[in-house]
Each structure stands twice: as C-alpha cells, then as structure tokens.
Design a protein around this nucleic acid. Structure first.
Lengths: 137, 137
DNA sequence: TATAATACCGTAATGATTACGATTTGTAAA
DNA sequence: TTTACAAATCGTAATCATTACGGTATTATA
C-alpha cells in the first residue's frame, strides 16, 4: 500500500482528505516498519503543535479498519505499519528500529489438521530480534 | 509445571511460601489456560478481601521470571498461564474461555535460513479462535 | 457560497499496570 | 521458641497508553 492508493481508498469510502491524514500516511511510508502512536504523535507535533490524541488514535483506527495499516502489539503498546497487501506473509521485527523483514513461511497449512472442530479466526507468527543494521559489532 | 514443582522452585530460589502464593498457583493449575491479572484478582478477592495490586502483579512477574508462568498479550492485556515445561510448542488460544491447545508445529527451523545475520531473540506463533466446547451450535 | 457531514481540538476519563512508604509475616539462627 | 531481619503485603497514589466527549473548524458538494 502506498500513499496514493491509500488516499484513493479513503476517498472511495467517503472519508475526507486532510493535511494531517496525508502526513500520517507519509510518516508510515517513510517509517518502513512498525511505529507506535507515540512515535507518530512526536512526528506530527513538529508540524501541528498540540495535535489531539483524538485525531491521532481516530485516524490510526480508521486506517487499520480500511486496511491501510496493519497492527500488532508488543510490550503493552500497539504498533502500526503500512499494510503489505501483495500476499500473505509474516514478519521479523527489529526491536531497535521497528523495521521488518518479510518471512514467507506460514505454518498454518500444517496446523489446521491438528485443529479439527476448532473455529480458527486468526493467527500470529512473528520473530523478534535485532536486524543486521542495528547490530553494534 | 505443577504446584509442588513450583513451590519447590520458589524455595530453592529463596522465596518465601505464603498462603497467597499457594492460592495463585492453585488458581492457574485449575485454570488450564490463559488468565488475566483481573481474573486472578477476582478469584483472590473471595478469600483475601482487598488484596493489593502490588501483591498480585509482583507475584505474576516473579512467577514469570522463574518460569512458573508463561505470558502473552492480547487486546491490550497481559495473559498468564502455567508454563508448559516438557518441550517447545505453541498454542491455539480460545478467545472465550482462554483454554489452550498445544500445537506441535514450529516454523522456526524453516525460517532461520531466511534470517542470516539477524539476531533472533524470540518468536511467537499463536492461533486464535473458539474451541469446540465454546461453540454454541 | 451555503450546508451538512466529517474532522479536529482541548481536555477529562478510563483501564491496566507500576510504584512506594508503612506494616506484617515467614524463616532460620540463637 | 523466641528473636531478628529480610521478604511480602497493604493501601493507595502515580503512570502510561488509550478512549471519550462537547464544542468548534474544515472539507466536500450541491
């Protein structure tokens, strides 16, 4: 998902385009990995001093709902990143910079046989650690 | 991990045995799945009216640290369950009752080759849904 | 450009968790 | 079995992320 696709999607669904909304998209496009609401607020503060929590969280939830952002949870905080729309995959997440690496292994196929009669609604497969760029040798 | 193993482990490490500590162990043994701090507090309140948050959270963290409990995070809350010590595996987690089913598939072996030069510190593979017992037909 | 729906602000409320000084209790040595 | 002291607990306040709300401003469109 890129910025233009995201803006089109919002328009299509009848949401309005605002400067803040565009800036949030830019932030996540440049982030190239998971970021917290706090990270986003800090970024927006430089342009929009005193931006409201309401605005930030409302838009994060909206973006997640319409599929612009995907989300996970770590250390009691929600993390957001641009949605990878091309195909199903999982992520290695760097705990230092938040950047992610795509993992194309998905174990669900092997798993379903162990879960007959279970109603499966979702799954999460994530790998945590430090990416090469963040390793101080 | 059962209650006696847990108590021995605590003694071994120099921690004191108290009624509350034993009750917490009993609670998790009977729970047979993930529970929140809130669940535990509600249970303890019936015996120890006005039990302190400090006591509850301190012991949850202690138990997690020494390996009596394992933990995960869902919907902004931490969940705790008795640690499965026998071998490495993952869980299906029922979102209604919190009970878990062991999943013996672990995708990590296939993954490491995709992550040369990455420092891998941990991983999480969980499946969410509704267990057969909780499905109202 | 007028209108209405949507977005945003400023701030208060919530919910889970953490923290702290004072008090109580378990343990082991005397 | 008493004593002494470290550890555990209490009662409560503080913190942190997130959610909520009444009033105001802005965007889209007719």
């Amino acid at each position: 998902m890129n910025i233009n696709e995201a803006i089109d999607l919002l328009k299509e669904k009848g949401y309005k385009t605002t400067g803040k909304r565009k800036d949030i998209l830019t932030f996540f496009e440049q982030a190239d990995g998971y970021r917290t609401a706090k990270d986003l607020i800090q970024h927006l503060e430089t342009t929009y001093e005193g931006i409201s929590f309401d605005t930030v969280y409302r838009n994060l939830h909206l973006y997640n709902e319409v599929g612009i952002l995907e989300t996970t949870e770590l250390n009691g905080e929600k993390l957001f990143r641009m949605n990878c729309t091309h195909h199903h995959h999982h992520h290695f997440i760097c705990k230092d910079c938040g950047k992610t690496k795509e993992i194309d292994v998905c174990p669900m196929e092997e798993v379903v046989s162990e879960l007959a009669n279970y109603d499966i609604e979702g799954h999460k497969f994530e790998i945590y650690g430090v990416c090469p760029a963040c390793q101080t040798v």
